[in-house]
C-alpha cells in the first residue's frame, strides 16, 4: 500500500504588473501603489493540486518564501482547500534570486518530509524567470516536467505521473517517475473560490507555520543578496518608440487609410 500522497504547492505573492511604476530618475521600481495578488499561475497550480486531492486523496500543503505580508494570501489558499500552509520568512532572504529561492524552497520541501508531487506556477508574473521549478527538481533529484497544460493521470502504486506539456507547435504526453516537480502553465484551469466556512477557519483558527533560515539549516550568507550568484547592476526603462498617434473616428476614412498603409508595405 502506498502512503498518502502529499502535494506541495509553491506560492508567491506578486504586485499586479500593470500597477507598477518606474521612476527613471532614481531608477527604482515603485510597487507601493500596486495591489498584491497570489501569482496567477500559482493559483492554477493550487487548483490542480486540489483536483488531485479530490480524486486520489492526500494532503495539499502550500509553501511560500516571502515577507510576513504574504500570510493573508496563504490563508486565502487554505480557504480554497489547502490543508496546511508554511511561510519561510526571514529578513536575510531579501534580494534572493531564482538560484537561492529554489534552494530555500527545496530545503523547505525536505523539512516537510518530501512530496509526491511539487506543483509550481510556470513562472511568476513579476520575475518571470521560470527557473524555480527546474531548480527545485534539481536540488531534490526529483523528475521534472515544465509547461504542463494537463495532468492526465497519477499512478500512486507504480509511482508514475502522466502529463501533457506544451512544445513548439503542439504538445507531448510524457510519463514521469514520482516524486516529480510539475510547472503548471498559466490559465489551464479556473481556480475555485474560497469556501465560506473554510475562510473563517483559515482566518481565525488556523495557526500558520513560519520557518526562518535557521530552521532550514541555512546561514545568512548562503541566502539573500549575498548568496545569490546574479546581481542587478541597474534598471532601465524600456521606452517604446514614439508613434504618430494619428486618430480616426470615421469608419470609411479609416478603411481608406488602412488600405493605403497595407499597400505601402512591400
Amino acid at each position: 500500500m502506498s502512503p498518502e500522497p502529499v502535494y506541495i504547492v509553491t506560492m508567491k505573492v506578486v504586485p499586479k504588473t500593470e500597477e507598477i511604476r518606474f521612476d527613471p530618475v532614481t531608477k527604482t521600481v515603485d510597487r507601493s501603489k500596486a495591489t498584491n495578488e497570489i501569482n496567477p499561475a500559482d493559483k492554477n497550480a493550487l487548483e490542480e493540486a486540489l483536483k488531485l486531492k479530490d480524486k486520489y486523496g492526500g494532503k495539499v500543503i502550500v509553501l511560500s518564501m516571502g515577507p510576513p505580508f504574504f500570510e493573508p494570501f496563504l490563508r486565502t489558499a487554505l480557504a480554497m482547500g489547502a490543508d496546511d500552509a508554511i511561510l519561510i520568512s526571514d529578513k536575510a532572504l531579501a534580494g534572493s534570486d531564482a538560484y537561492v529561492t529554489s534552494m530555500v524552497l527545496a530545503k523547505g520541501i525536505q523539512k516537510i518530509g518530501g512530496a509526491t508531487l511539487v506543483l509550481c506556477g510556470e513562472e511568476s508574473s513579476d520575475g518571470s524567470t521560470g527557473q524555480v521549478p527546474p531548480g527545485i527538481a534539481t536540488w531534490l533529484g526529483y523528475s521534472l516536467a515544465t509547461f504542463v497544460s494537463k495532468i492526465i493521470s497519477l499512478d500512486l502504486e507504480n509511482k508514475k505521473v502522466v502529463v501533457r506539456r506544451t512544445i513548439k507547435g503542439g504538445y507531448e504526453d510524457i510519463d514521469l517517475p514520482l516524486p516529480a516537480v510539475l510547472a503548471i502553465e498559466l490559465g489551464i484551469n479556473t481556480p475555485r473560490f474560497p469556501d465560506f466556512r473554510r475562510k473563517r477557519w483559515a482566518e481565525k483558527e488556523y495557526k500558520m507555520t513560519i520557518w526562518n533560515i535557521h530552521d532550514l539549516g541555512l546561514k545568512p550568507e548562503e541566502v539573500g543578496l549575498t548568496g545569490s550568484p546574479s546581481r542587478v547592476k541597474t534598471l532601465i526603462e524600456l521606452k517604446p518608440p514614439e508613434r504618430m498617434r494619428k486618430i480616426i473616428t470615421d469608419p470609411d476614412q479609416a478603411v481608406e487609410e488602412i488600405i493605403k498603409i497595407i499597400k505601402s508595405i512591400k
Binding site: 504588473t17 500593470e18 507598477i20 518606474f22 521600481v29 508574473s125 513579476d126 520575475g127 518571470s128 550568484p229 546574479s230 546581481r231 542587478v232 547592476k233 541597474t234 534598471l235 532601465i236 526603462e237 524600456l238
Partner: peptide, 12 residues
C-alpha cells in the same frame, strides 16, 4: 521584467 516595461541589467 514587470510585464516588459522595465529591464534589469544583470551580471553573474
Amino acid at each position: 521584467g514587470f510585464g516588459g516595461n522595465i529591464a534589469a541589467v544583470c551580471e553573474c
